[in-house]
Nucleic acid binder design. Structure first.
Lengths: 195, 195
DNA sequence: CGCGACGTTGATTTGCCTCAACGATTGTGG
DNA sequence: CCACAATCGTTGAGGCAAATCAACGTCGCG
């Protein structure tokens, strides 16, 4: 049970679970070790799990029809990563989800966790609240992308997620920010402006 | 009760509600008429309602520090509109939510609907499922914005939402697609390519 | 009618991309 | 433990998509 403290602790920041509910939940959790550069989701396959990152880092990305990579999200400890569209529709994925480091994840299978959301009200609440939060933040990102210059977006990210920015390869960060790796390099070389 | 069929019908596409639950829910709904160009959310004020559009159209937008408008979302019948970040955190809004036509909305106050999500499991499920869906789609939009040219984005939108595209002013659509009104005009003037 | 909201069109500018070549660092097999 | 290849980052020249600025149609409404 102690091994699941990370995720249980995270859940209990939003809702309360009885001991019985905790057991039910942890009983369907599968712990998986993933090596750097390995994929846990690939285009064409259905994303079957909600993946909770216990240790490590992942990126979600896709390759457009000109062959260029676009990072959709970057996740570290205590985040969920998946091709969410694929997961909720149980349809083939369009994204890759790849480990950026040797990692450990908790996997909850669609067929196990979705019925459990029917059964356990608190669990449903947890996912509702966290998804609403993620959704609200994702809107902010759309805005940031559309209304700000590349340098400003980079500075903003640095301020908000300094640890992540220095943990992932630069070309991943660049493709997340929607700019080319070369241009990000040039931005970083620029003389610092007054803060 | 019949007056609430639009929203109840929408909810029942996802979950089942007992008659008692329907009454509880509709009892907290407030029907509001909104005139074209009127605001239901403004920066600085807390967004207190989940707003369900019964009739009409709205846009959610914000003004960046260069004074330019950026449309975050466009909603028509059966959609929810709000400054979602403001709503879930009950913090001052940064967005405007404005009627594009004379409209009718159902408003559910935060203090009424949130406790009801604790109480009524089906309602919680409904919001969980719809938000997850909205979130998954919003990711697709991020991608579309970052990996495609302006013309392609416009054509895509036309195909997906032909009714909306012809219903809202062009400058609103332009600011939603992340391009200038002038440039959208030029795209539309372009000779049609082979489809 | 006349004004404000919306759309168009053209000239010019610019932020960022592309391509190409070159360091620096890591890691891996002989 | 070294050699060589990946992997990742840097730098510069040139190009293009889209922004900006400015002026001018057009429609609908008070």
């Amino acid at each position: 049970m102690e091994q699941y403290q990370t995720i249980l602790g995270n859940i209990e920041r939003y809702v309360q679970l009885s001991d019985d509910e905790k057991h039910k939940l942890t009983s369907i959790i599968r712990t998986t070790r993933v090596k750097k550069r390995q994929f846990i989701v690939q285009p064409g396959f259905v994303c079957q799990y909600r993946n909770y990152i216990v240790k490590g880092a992942f990126r979600v990305y896709y390759i457009n029809n000109e062959g260029k990579e676009h990072t959709v999200s970057i996740g570290v400890e205590d985040w969920f990563v998946s091709d969410f569209y694929s997961y909720i529709n149980q349809a083939p994925a369009t994204f890759y989800v790849q480990a950026l480091e040797d990692s450990v994840i908790f996997q909850m299978h669609y067929d196990d966790i979705e019925p459990m959301c029917e059964e356990i009200h608190a669990l449903c609440q947890y996912f509702r609240l966290t998804t609403e939060k993620a959704f609200a933040y994702s809107r902010r990102r759309v805005i940031s992308n559309n209304s700000k210059g590349a340098e400003e977006r980079y500075q903003e990210y640095l301020e908000k997620y300094p640890n992540i920015a220095n943990r992932v390869p630069q070309y991943v960060l660049a493709s997340y920010l929607g700019i080319s790796a070369e241009f990000l390099s040039k931005i970083r070389a620029r003389p610092l402006k007054k803060s």
